[in-house]
């Protein structure tokens, strides 16, 4: 009977960033948001473990009131309990990890905490390790496969130089990558049913976390200006290909890259 805690972030859709065209300042408030790509897989994996072990899945999100949207989605997918820890804007990973750890202490213990390996927008890939560090439990990172047996969890992950297989006793924190599974798509019926479910709220304050305590201050976020030459040749008419390739080669020679 595995009890699992999953963290999902109300993340910016990075493909639809809204920015001020003049200053290139990113307008986070106006940018559409969704459940993170890896977070959704964390939830899916938790649900699969729950189904196998007759377990229980609690989902939390530290985010603005709008983040209820992704908690509804979590209910529709099959979560047992969903909590919003309301904040005006999402604080840095230091504060978020403190909140998750305190939630674990007050509402847990859980056998597993499953998070995405990286959030879609800030992509720090550090939250799992931070939570594990605070709780003094193992971190099994970047899992592309999870197996549970008795009170032990085993994962497989790629860490750049090869494939690793790690094992530890639970409780533990596991973070998952995109490869791990294909998340389920809830049916319309599940979605409608989820609308009647209650989303619980606990303020970070109640957990004893001061959201102003972060050690790193973000002073600005600016979109990159793409400074490429954008010299484009149209070879959709195949008879032009030869001539265009010659031109391209000439350019590349001038650039000194051929």
């Amino acid at each position: 009977m595995a009890k699992i805690l999953v963290g999902v972030k109300f993340s910016l859709k990075v493909d639809n960033l809204i920015m001020d065209p003049r200053t290139l300042e990113v307008k986070e408030d106006e940018t559409p948001k969704q459940m993170g790509d890896m977070d959704k897989r964390a939830l899916e994996e938790a649900l699969r473990i729950k189904e196998k072990t007759n377990g229980e899945v609690t989902v939390i999100s530290i985010g603005p009131p709008d983040a209820k949207k992704i908690l509804m989605e979590a209910y529709a997918m099959g979560a047992d309990e969903a909590y919003l820890l309301p904040v005006e804007s999402i604080p840095d990973t230091h504060v978020v990890s403190r909140i998750i750890a305190e939630f674990y202490n007050k509402h847990g213990p859980y056998d597993l905490i499953i998070l995405g390996a990286s959030s879609t927008d800030s992509f720090t890939s550090t939250l799992g390790a931070r939570v594990a560090g605070l709780l003094g439990i193992p971190i099994l990172p970047f899992a592309k496969k999870i197996e549970i047996e008795g009170d032990e969890v085993t994962i497989e992950s790629e860490l750049g130089d090869g494939t690793y297989k790690f094992k530890s006793k639970m409780p533990a924190v596991v973070t998952v990558t995109l490869e791990i599974n294909e998340p389920r798509i809830p049916t319309l019926k599940d979605i409608l049913k989820a609308k009647r479910r209650q989303i619980f709220e606990i303020s970070p304050n109640e957990l004893g976390v001061d959201i102003g305590e972060s050690l790193v201050k973000i002073s600005e976020v600016k979109a990159y200006e793409e400074k490429r030459k954008n010299i484009i040749f149209d070879a959709s008419d195949p008879s032009k290909i030869g001539e265009i390739i010659d031109k391209l080669i000439e350019h590349l020679r001038e650039e000194g890259v051929l």
Partner: peptide, 14 residues
């Protein structure tokens, strides 16, 4: 870099 490398974030260490 943040936002899938579309933006650059400036951060100050307290």
């Amino acid at each position: 870099p943040v936002y899938a490398g579309k933006a650059l974030s400036t951060q100050i260490i307290e």
